[in-house]
Amino acid sequence: MERLKIAIQKSGRLNEDSLKILKESGISVSNGLDQLRATVSNFPMEILYLRNSDIPQYLIDGVVDIAIIGENLLVEKDQGSIKVLEKLSFSKCRVSLAVPKTFEYNNIKDLAGKKIATSYPNTLNKYLKSEGIDAELHQISGSVEIAPNIGLADAICDIVSSGSTLFKNNLKEVEVIGRSEAVLAVSPEISESKKEILDKLRFRLQSVLKARNFRYILMNVPDGQIQKVISILPGMRSPTVLPLAEKGWSSIHTVIEKNKFWEVIDELQDLGAEGILVAPIEKMVI
């Protein structure tokens, strides 16, 4: 049986989140410790655990058909032939410039002629050129944030999530030059037959991603307020209304965007809604 080959990061946060979304999509992965290849028992797919920086080239060469990878790496490798199919809403970060806290920074011109350490030289070079800034770049791997402390550089360019690593190294973020998240990327060499398998996987992923943005909400409402409650609930099509055993009351069930709930909770309570329950949704097929 033909199998879709997917590459994910060998270890780290991206690895964990990638396996999590595959599991939520009904993909059963069975692999042992330190195994570089894993089979899937219930879907025509094979997983290859690869070093993050190697994945773009494997996609270009057609060694793997698809990959879950950080968008920032595709930008750095300048692989325009690799198509991004889905943004996966995890492993979000930004590519930023940072300087020591004692550095008097006003704007990007303050870095002209300075030494900047980075693991993303292409991304940084493009940004500096666009700003008309000439600086000296030092390409290093790992622990970029230590460079200013040991006198290797005046500033750094690196990925930032929470900013805690910068804080621990007495650095401050001064410019965001790009934003990134995990994406599903596809090889330009993928065959038509494997595209059919990919479409099925993509459908599953989309169902999981949609569900993460919504919540299932149910509440008890006085019958006289049903229409008003329905009018303020941004449901998908039409709420379900069920009569309760207690006369004069009904239960309303609907789906709401998770970030909209707190916007309407006060209105719902003012209309007499009681016993409001909010639950996560595992999958959503629209």
Results as ranks from 00 to 15, higher is better:
residue 224 G to P: 04
residue 153 A to G: 03
residue 184 L to Y: 05
residue 266 D to E: 09
residue 200 K to D: 15
residue 172 K to N: 06
residue 184 L to I: 15
residue 247 K to P: 06
residue 158 D to I: 09
residue 185 A to E: 08
residue 158 D to W: 14
residue 181 E to L: 01
residue 150 I to H: 01
residue 198 L to D: 10
residue 182 A to F: 08
residue 271 L to G: 06
residue 243 P to E: 10
residue 196 E to I: 15
residue 222 P to Y: 00
residue 202 R to W: 11
residue 271 L to R: 07
residue 257 E to H: 09
residue 248 G to F: 05
residue 176 V to S: 02
residue 185 A to N: 08
residue 243 P to L: 01
residue 167 F to H: 11
residue 196 E to T: 11
residue 266 D to F: 07
residue 151 G to I: 12
residue 264 V to L: 09
residue 172 K to T: 04
residue 238 S to D: 11
residue 269 Q to P: 07
residue 150 I to R: 01
residue 220 N to F: 04
residue 165 T to G: 07
residue 152 L to S: 00
residue 234 P to G: 13
residue 256 I to L: 13
residue 166 L to M: 13
residue 151 G to N: 08
residue 272 G to Y: 07
residue 257 E to T: 12
residue 211 A to K: 06
residue 154 D to S: 03
residue 209 L to G: 03
residue 249 W to E: 14
residue 232 I to R: 08
residue 165 T to Y: 03
residue 174 V to A: 05
residue 150 I to V: 03
residue 211 A to W: 09
residue 185 A to C: 06
residue 253 H to D: 15
residue 217 I to C: 06
residue 173 E to T: 15
residue 164 S to V: 08
residue 259 N to A: 14
residue 162 S to H: 05
residue 249 W to H: 12
residue 181 E to W: 04
residue 233 L to H: 06
residue 171 L to P: 02
residue 179 R to A: 14
residue 224 G to T: 13
residue 238 S to N: 09
residue 198 L to Q: 08
residue 170 N to L: 05
residue 172 K to Y: 05
residue 170 N to E: 15
residue 164 S to A: 12
residue 238 S to R: 11
residue 171 L to N: 03
residue 230 I to L: 09
residue 259 N to H: 07
residue 236 M to W: 09
residue 149 N to V: 13
residue 191 S to D: 00
residue 151 G to H: 07
residue 149 N to C: 14
residue 205 L to V: 12
residue 230 I to P: 04
residue 185 A to D: 09
residue 271 L to Q: 12
residue 181 E to Q: 11
residue 217 I to A: 04
residue 204 R to C: 11
residue 268 L to M: 13
residue 265 I to F: 08
residue 262 W to K: 06
residue 158 D to Q: 15
residue 268 L to S: 14
residue 188 P to L: 13
residue 202 R to V: 06
residue 204 R to V: 02
residue 163 G to I: 00
residue 198 L to E: 09
residue 257 E to I: 15
residue 182 A to W: 08
residue 173 E to Q: 15
residue 170 N to V: 00
residue 225 Q to K: 13
residue 178 G to F: 02
residue 186 V to I: 11
residue 240 T to G: 07
residue 175 E to Q: 11
residue 172 K to P: 01
residue 167 F to I: 02
residue 174 V to G: 00
residue 180 S to Q: 06
